[in-house]
Every structure is written in C-alpha cells, then in structure tokens.
Simulated scan of single mutants.
Amino acid sequence: MQANTNSPARTTDLLEKQQEKAQAAAAAEVARNDTKAGAMLSASSLMAAVLVGVVPSADLSGAVAVLVGLGVLLNLAAIVVTLLVIRSRFGRPESMSGSFLHWADLTPEQLVEDLARDRRAEQTIALSRIARGKHRLVRLAVDLTVAAAAALAVALVAALA
C-alpha cells in the first residue's frame, strides 16, 4: 500500500514550515532594507561633508550656485528619507499583540497565554508591510542621491568650463 502524502499531519507540517520560512523571509527583508539605509546614510553624509567643506569658500557663479544648491537640497532630502527608513515602524504597543512592545506590559501569566497563540501569519503580514514601506523609501533615497550627484557633477563641469 502507498502512504497518503496529503495526510492532515503532513499538510500541517508543511504549513508550519512555510509559515516559518515566510516569517523569516519578511524579517530578512526588513534587515536588508535597514542595511541599505545605513549604506545610503553613509554615502549621503559623505557628500554633505564634502559640500560643507568646499562650498563656503567657493566663489560660485549664478548657474553653478543654483546647481550646487539643487544638489544640496536633493542630498538633504535623501538623508531625511533614509532616516525615515530606519525609524521604528512597529506602532503602538496595544496594537502589537505578539511583539516585544506588547509583552513589556504583561504579567508572566499573561505572557505565557499570549505566547500560546500562533501569530506567525499576522506577524509575517506586518513585517512584509514594514519591509515594503522601507523598500520604497530606500529606492527614493537612492533616486534622490543619484539626482544630487548628477546636479553636483553638472555644477562641477560648469565651474571648470
């Protein structure tokens, strides 16, 4: 006789593994976006430091000054957007059952009761939404940084011409 490969126990085990994989993947995406944001913050900060060191002593013509100003504004926007990426996204403790924010206000008995509930699906959805929002902000920060670099490159070429 052939074993039933779609038994309820096998289906439950498969679902358990899929839930664990999905939650781990969502958490990894949040971490990846935070890492990218850290790199973006370093790049934008470096650009800002160079600008602070060079621009005050430079004698800039009208068009070059406008381009440098545009580059500075775009770079500052990229820094602000990047900071929004790394800002906490967990929400209010009372709305985050199954999280450390919620657990901080529980008694030991309430914590045991809370841990008994499987919230992986809810947590995976919440993490996925956080990751998606962070991803969008990282993309915007990259776009702003590229635009700032382009404006500053054009300003440099114009100043040297």
Score class of each variant (00 low, 15 high):
Ala3Thr: 10
Asn4Trp: 03
Asn4Pro: 01
Thr5Ala: 12
Asn6Trp: 14
Ser7Ala: 12
Pro8Met: 13
Thr11His: 11
Lys17Met: 15
Glu20Asn: 06
Glu20Tyr: 14
Glu20His: 11
Lys21Pro: 00
Ala22Pro: 03
Ala24Thr: 06
Ala24Gly: 07
Ala24Arg: 13
Ala24Trp: 11
Ala25Leu: 13
Ala26Glu: 07
Ala27Pro: 01
Ala27Phe: 04
Glu29Ser: 11
Val30Trp: 03
Val30Phe: 13
Ala31Glu: 08
Arg32Glu: 10
Arg32Met: 09
Arg32Trp: 08
Asn33Gln: 12
Asn33Met: 08
Asp34Glu: 10
Thr35Ile: 03
Ala37Ile: 05
Ala39Asn: 14
Met40Cys: 10
Leu41Phe: 03
Ala43Trp: 01
Ser44Glu: 09
Ser45Met: 15
Leu51Trp: 12
Leu51Asp: 14
Leu51Pro: 08
Val52Cys: 07
Val52His: 06
Val52Glu: 09
Gly53Leu: 04
Val55Met: 08
Val55Glu: 01
Pro56Ile: 02
Ser57Asn: 08
Ser57Thr: 15
Leu60Asp: 05
Val64His: 02
Val66Trp: 02
Val68Trp: 01
Val68Lys: 05
Gly71Cys: 09
Leu73Ser: 13
Asn75Ala: 11
Asn75Gln: 09
Ala78Asn: 02
Val80Asp: 01
Thr82Ala: 11
Leu83Thr: 00
Leu83Trp: 02
Leu84Asp: 00
Val85Leu: 00
Arg87Met: 05
Ser88Ile: 04
Arg89Leu: 04
Phe90Pro: 00
Phe90Ser: 06
Ser95Met: 04
Met96Trp: 02
Leu101Trp: 06
Pro108Tyr: 02
Gln110Cys: 05
Gln110Val: 12
Gln110Gly: 15
Leu111Gly: 02
Val112Asn: 05
Glu113Cys: 01
Glu113Ala: 13
Asp114Arg: 01
Leu115Ala: 02
Ala116Cys: 07
Arg117Val: 09
Arg117Cys: 03
Asp118His: 14
Ala121Phe: 11
Ala121Ile: 13
Ala121Cys: 10
Ala121Asp: 15
Ala121His: 05
Thr124Ala: 10
Ile125Asn: 02
Ile125His: 14
Ser128Pro: 04
Arg129Phe: 08
Ile130Ser: 04
Ile130Val: 06
Lys134His: 15
His135Gln: 11
Arg136Asn: 15
Arg136Ile: 13
Val138Gln: 06
Val138Phe: 04
Arg139Met: 09
Arg139Lys: 13
Val142Glu: 12
Val142Asp: 14
Leu144Asn: 04
Leu144Val: 04
Leu144Ser: 02
Leu144Asp: 03
Thr145Gly: 06
Thr145Gln: 06
Val146Met: 06
Ala148Asp: 06
Ala149Ile: 09
Ala150Pro: 02
Ala151Lys: 00
Ala151Trp: 01
Leu152Gln: 11
Ala153Thr: 06
Leu156Glu: 14
Leu156Asp: 03
Leu156Ala: 10
Ala158Met: 10
Ala159His: 12
Leu160Arg: 08
Ala161Arg: 07
